[in-house]
């Protein structure tokens, strides 16, 4: 608990970032409940519909306590022109009934956080298939945000283990492990990623692809980290407090994991938070090339990939870029958080 208080005192921006990150993750977890529509629900009559405006005043200037939306009607399909029908008021309700879905895959429910009884509500607009972008962003967060965390955990586990052992024991072990690391670092990571992906068949289920991406990304990530950890361990093991721990008769593995590794935290915590965005972007890159998470399941990366190179969308439907904003927000929050955590990890700053 202490760490939150310290974070707030020392680095307010990173404290706020922490809350934004927590908020984003809870959106991802509760996507089934918060999103008004399923991620694959297509509204064929409203493709590329702009974000629905939420109103309190109707066309006569009368105030409504309950916010409402108007219906959007496609008037010119070739130009994608929409008109707002101001005659029909569709009030927004909490806990409205909709299609049956399982919340968190466990609890079947028909009620969602908010929605409309008549008409439709697309907070972030729709894509060319008429799917609600807001709902898809929430579902996509599940992929994009968890890939970062899981990937980082795997590659940090490998990095600490291999870097720690290599640096501490040195000699032959170090030699062998570092050559292994160099093999991984030898290839430009982008091509390594493509090559690794190419080894596996294309027709995998979404879940398999997901696992595959996590593994590929962490296989790429751990090598550089292991090298850095090794370097730090190499210098920290010469520190005098390590000698005095040895003089106390503390066993070797305890020295590595209690005295040496924690002293790399001021660096590695920052590195961890700074590398999460890399995983999110890595997934987007794969999706962009059609090798990532496959439609209809959304990830922030594959939602963006549809717009890239499609000028019609970029000029007519800029709301399709909203997933990009979320990637940006996540990255910047993790960066700030990493900065703050580094300060907080060092007792000298307390």
């Amino acid at each position: 608990m202490n760490i939150f208080v310290r974070l707030r005192k020392r680095n307010f921006i990173s404290y706020i970032s922490l809350y934004i990150i927590i908020f984003l993750y809870s959106l991802a977890i509760l996507a089934d409940f918060i999103s008004p529509y399923p991620y694959n629900k297509q509204f064929r009559d409203t493709p590329l519909c702009p974000p629905t405006k939420i109103n309190f005043f109707d066309k006569n200037g009368k105030f409504h306590l309950r916010p409402f939306v108007y219906e959007y009607k496609l008037v010119n399909p070739s130009l994608n022109k929409y008109e707002i029908d101001r005659n029909k008021i569709c009030p927004i309700y909490f806990f409205v009934k909709g299609e049956r879905r399982k919340i968190l895959g466990l609890f079947p429910s028909r009620r969602y956080l908010f929605g409309v009884k008549e008409g439709k509500i697309f907070l972030f607009g729709t894509d060319m298939h008429g799917r609600d972008i807001f709902s898809r962003v929430l579902y996509g967060a599940r992929i994009s945000l968890s890939i970062g965390i899981i990937g980082v955990l795997i590659s940090f586990f490998l990095g600490f283990l291999i870097g720690g052992i290599s640096g501490y024991f040195g000699g032959k072990i170090d030699n062998v492990l570092m050559r292994l690391v160099e093999i991984f670092m030898m290839f430009p990571s982008f091509y390594l990623m493509l090559a690794l992906r190419a080894v596996f068949p294309l027709n995998l289920s979404s879940f398999q692809v997901y696992l595959l991406i996590v593994i590929i990304l962490s296989l790429i990530g751990w090598a550089g980290l292991a090298r850095i950890i090794r370097g730090m361990v190499l210098s920290i093991k010469e520190e005098e407090y390590v000698l005095s721990a040895k003089a106390l008769g503390i066993p070797t593995f305890r020295i590595i994991f209690r005295h040496i590794i924690p002293n790399t935290f001021s660096y590695s915590i920052t590195a961890i938070t700074l590398s999460i965005p890399g995983y999110i972007l890595g997934e987007s890159t794969l999706s962009l090339l059609g090798l990532g998470i496959q439609e209809p399941y959304p990830s922030w990366g594959n939602m963006l990939s549809v717009c890239i190179g499609n000028l019609r969308i970029l000029s007519n439907a800029p709301w399709m870029l909203i997933p990009g904003f979320f990637i940006f927000l996540t990255i910047i929050c993790f960066n700030f958080l990493g900065d703050g955590l580094r300060d907080v990890c060092d007792p000298k700053n307390w």
């Binding site: 005098e240 407090y241 005095s244 003089a247 106390l248 007792p347």
Partner: peptide, 27 residues
């Protein structure tokens, strides 16, 4: 062996170092 030495260091033989500030773990 190193393992057996670990049972002597700190238990039977204690050591005080020259420069206390750097011989204590800052964390």
């Amino acid at each position: 062996k190193e393992k057996e030495m670990q049972n002597i260091r700190g238990k039977k033989i204690g050591m005080i170092f020259q420069e206390p500030s750097s011989f204590l773990n800052p964390l």
